[in-house]
């Protein structure tokens, strides 16, 4: 199988892509996002279980030439985000050259060791799946011990709570929010040029990091992810305050799956859940 660096060099040398969004290591060997623009830059690219960042976020943050093409190094969870962006008409398929990586699971934090307890829960449900949409594939997937789904336990606990108890649970979590918007900025599906939270005529969302403002932001952000979240868990990783944001998005993903048999980011030509209508859609859950 061709090596990541070889593929990248070929693409940059032939000018098939104008740059490649990938990963590199910093002065202490910590993995971070990196934009390779030249054949020499391609030598700095790498991929391992610390390549936690979902680079699909850069497809809408960076300027991608209308008729050009950029390369992106992507795990299968990141590829779902790329597919979702294509489904939502944010990028065209031909604008991206996807270097799909065979992945061995990624850890939660950049300095974590690659062992069962540190591997992200999302990897449990994707572990042995190879990239699903790609232009080239690189890397070797090594077997790893599956993490325990501690989140599922917590979700079940939340299901059994009364609405007052659930309110208290989220009030306590949202109280921590400092409105740094890392959850929004790191999210590949949050690409609005002007976020609702930045609109003040009228003011839709209370901007203050107060209980009212924090509920208003976090709940509306979650609503906007209904049927759209691809489950990369980047919001939760980025949150400096440790708010379990993916409990909300995962629950909504489950509802989308159960009620509409829909999962976002699976096929580029599939109409989106909120962008399509079907007479057979289940309406039982509307009370």
């Amino acid at each position: 199988m061709p090596d990541l660096i070889e593929i990248a060099k070929g693409l940059l040398e032939s000018k098939e892509v104008s740059f490649i969004i990938g990963y590199t290591k910093d002065r202490f060997g910590r993995v971070k996002p990196y934009i390779a623009k030249s054949v020499e830059d391609a030598n700095n690219l790498m991929f391992d279980h610390h390549s936690i960042h979902n680079l699909a976020v850069y497809l809408t943050r960076l300027k991608i030439p209308e008729n050009g093409r950029v390369g992106i190094v992507a795990k299968s969870c990141d590829i779902k985000a790329i597919i979702a962006l294509i489904q939502e008409n944010q990028i065209k398929r031909e604008q991206v050259y996807i270097i799909g990586m065979n992945c061995s699971g990624v850890v939660t934090h950049s300095t974590d060791e690659w062992k069962k307890e540190n591997i992200q829960i999302k990897c449990k449900y994707c572990a042995d799946k190879a990239p699903m949409l790609y232009d080239a594939v690189a890397g070797t997937a090594e077997p790893f011990e599956q993490p325990d789904d501690t989140q599922e336990v917590l979700m079940q606990k939340l299901e059994t709570m009364s609405s007052a108890e659930r309110w208290d649970f989220w009030a306590k979590e949202f109280e921590k929010c400092i409105k740094c918007y890392a959850c929004r900025q790191v999210c590949p599906m949050c690409y609005c040029e002007q976020c609702l939270a930045e609109k003040n005529q009228p003011q839709w969302i209370t901007t203050s990091p107060t209980p009212a403002g924090n509920f208003s932001w976090n709940i509306i952000k979650a609503f906007h992810m209904a049927g759209r979240c691809v489950g990369c868990h980047e919001c939760e990783r980025a949150c400096p305050m440790g708010i379990p944001l993916t409990l909300l998005t995962r629950k909504m993903g489950m509802v989308a799956g159960k009620e509409f048999n829909y999962r976002h980011g699976m096929a580029i030509d599939q109409p989106t859940l909120v962008g399509s209508y079907n007479f057979n859609d289940n309406e039982d859950f509307i009370k």
Partner: peptide, 15 residues
């Protein structure tokens, strides 16, 4: 080079 990688949140400023 830094700006293109920075995603524009305020994690750094708020912590």
């Amino acid at each position: 080079e830094t700006g293109e990688v920075c995603i524009g949140c305020a994690q750094c400023a708020f912590v």
